[in-house]
Design a protein around this nucleic acid. Structure first.
Lengths: 103, 103
DNA sequence: ATTGACTTGTCATATATTGGCAAATATACC
DNA sequence: GGTATATTTGCCAATATATGACAAGTCAAT
């Protein structure tokens, strides 16, 4: 339930001295929702990441990485074989990338 | 939509010379569902993996790893930063494991 | 005790996933 | 050709999960 994405967003928001109520409207949500996002109990929509990044004057890709990482973590967090699964997935990714490049 | 888990299950099932209709009942589903699982368009329930492993005389953990890896892949497959996200998630996993060990 | 920032709970609704069945396809055999 | 068996696909109702909106709550400062 804790989320690296959320924590980072909060950090960035505080660095910009913005209140939830100042940020939330740009994302078309209320402060309650944004609060939950920062706390990690809700997910920001994928396509709002760049919007948020701009408001917070942050790097969109950095936020995206954290946002994805949270979800990856969620999949395997209770599994003994978590790291093995990550390795396997990484392998698949790498070999798919190779194929793409050469197609 | 292609799935390593599904492909492996099919391999194992064929090695055991079993038909879908012979396996499906043990998982309390029909052949159509099992077919979809092998094809990767449906997910087997987490707690059925050991059941399936036993039917196929396979290693439950091996199947679990593939099952998880498919889902990890699904999260990041279209993302440019997929590998970065995986690294980040792996880091989190490792550091959480350290904390668990020492708590 | 009032104000402002944030958090939490609830609940109706939207969205996604699943289960079950029927029909389609594929392959082999006669 | 026609039948039989195995698998696949499409559809849709049922279930489960996620989301949005709002009210009420906590907490800290004054």
């Amino acid at each position: 339930m804790k989320s690296q994405f959320g924590e980072r967003v909060r950090e960035l928001r505080e660095k910009q001295n913005l209140y939830l109520r100042q940020v939330a409207p740009f994302l078309e949500m209320d402060t309650a929702q944004l609060s939950k996002i920062e706390k990690g109990s809700r997910l920001l929509k994928r396509d709002q990441i760049p919007v948020l990044a701009e408001i917070l004057k942050a790097d969109s890709n950095e936020l995206l990485v954290l946002w994805l990482a949270d979800q990856l973590y969620e999949v395997v967090k209770d599994e003994d074989v978590a790291l093995k699964a990550m390795d396997a997935a990484q392998e698949t990714l790498k070999s798919n990338k190779r194929n793409k490049r050469n197609k």
